[in-house]
């Protein structure tokens, strides 16, 4: 009962901490508007605006207000939505309102929601593949330490860490689609439309990102497994006749996985914000592509919105990983 209570307190503390981090992040991002050279109203209006149009845009976006008031409106828009009005025309931006895109006047939240399925597909698939592959090879090379298996795996993972993701993706595309013709060149099909086509088309992006990321998981898993295998309690269970498989599965893995989970949460968060290179390479209409496009066009509301989403994903994933870690290892909880 007591453990449950301290567990709940721990979780609550983590979540409050996450919320605070996000608040700080939003302030930092919002300052972007003012730190960047150039007039936001002019940026929003476009190259060919005359001063009166710029003034109109300034009033409509509330850029004539003091900075803190603008930030307050921004926060308020996040929770309750806000209206942009100039003269008679009123544009409503619904509840998690992150502003309007300078490029096409669409709410940023709509753009993010449109890009999210592709990003989510890529992140979840690639992360699953990466964990299976990374933890598997890491564990294998820890258990076969000093053998030929370990040496081969070490070389492979080193190669994996050293290969840039765009090179890996291009190679896969060339070999699988152009040379062997096992798969057509991928083009994104939403999961809801055709699950089978979705999976086939996502296969190469998953492989690219998953293979690339798995190398570091292999190294981390190997190192932390070897560390745990050298601990006294492993010796205890060996000295009590518990089989090697049970020793590894029940005792070594439990100790070796928390750092892997922590890193996984961080990476999953980053991937949920869009794996820019992979998305661009395979033409996936995800957040990464959205971010690259908006940076190129200096579409500040979109940049701020997407980065805020990435931040949220990372922070939340971290909080979840902390809670998972505490569940596995109760020593983390304050007594």
């Amino acid at each position: 009962m007591n453990a449950l209570l301290s567990g709940a307190r721990f979780t609550a503390k983590r979540l409050v901490g996450a919320a605070l981090v996000l608040l700080v992040l939003s302030v930092a991002l919002y300052s972007l508007f003012y730190l960047l050279p150039g007039d936001p109203a002019r940026l929003a209006c476009g190259e060919r605006c005359d001063p009166s149009q710029v003034a109109q845009v300034r009033e409509r976006l509330g850029l004539d207000e003091p900075v803190h008031a603008q930030y307050a409106h921004f926060l308020q828009g996040l929770f309750t939505g806000r209206d942009y009005s100039a003269g008679t025309s009123v544009r409503h931006c619904a509840a998690p309102c992150l502003g309007l895109s300078h490029q096409n006047d669409q709410p940023v939240s709509t753009l993010i929601v449109e890009g999210f399925p592709a990003t989510l597909s890529l992140a979840v698939g690639a992360m699953t593949l990466c964990l299976l592959l990374g933890v598997g090879t890491g564990l294998l090379s820890a258990l076969r330490r000093g053998g030929i298996t370990e040496r081969v795996l070490t070389v492979l993972t080193l190669a994996g860490t050293g290969t840039p993701v765009f090179l890996l993706g291009l190679l896969l595309l060339m070999v699988v689609c152009a040379y062997l013709r096992w798969l057509p060149f991928p083009s994104y099909v939403p999961l809801a439309e055709d699950p089978e086509q979705w999976a086939w088309n996502m296969l190469l992006p998953w492989l690219t990102l998953g293979l690339f990321e798995s190398a570091k998981y292999a190294r981390l898993t190997r190192a932390s497994t070897l560390e745990v295998l050298a601990e006294d309690h492993i010796r205890t269970f060996r000295a009590y006749g518990v089989g090697e498989r049970a020793v590894v599965a029940r005792h070594a893995l439990r100790g070796a996985l928390p750092p892997v989970i922590a890193l996984g949460a961080l990476d999953l968060g980053t991937m949920l914000g869009g794996a820019m290179i992979t998305e661009s390479l395979f033409g996936l209409p995800g957040l990464g592509r959205l971010l690259i496009g908006s940076v190129r066009d200096v579409d500040l509301p979109v940049v701020v919105g997407v980065v805020l989403v990435i931040g949220t994903a990372v922070v939340v994933a971290n909080a979840v990983a902390d809670v998972l870690h505490a569940l596995a290892d109760r020593r983390v909880l304050p007594s």
């Binding site: 006294d232 205890t236 269970f237 000295a239 029940r250 005792h251 100790g255 290892d329």
Partner: peptide
């Protein structure tokens, strides 16, 4: 059956 020196490190901390 063996009884080890350091009982803290000799037991699995997670279980």
């Amino acid at each position: 059956a063996m009884v080890f020196q350091d009982p803290l490190s000799s037991l699995d901390p997670y279980l």
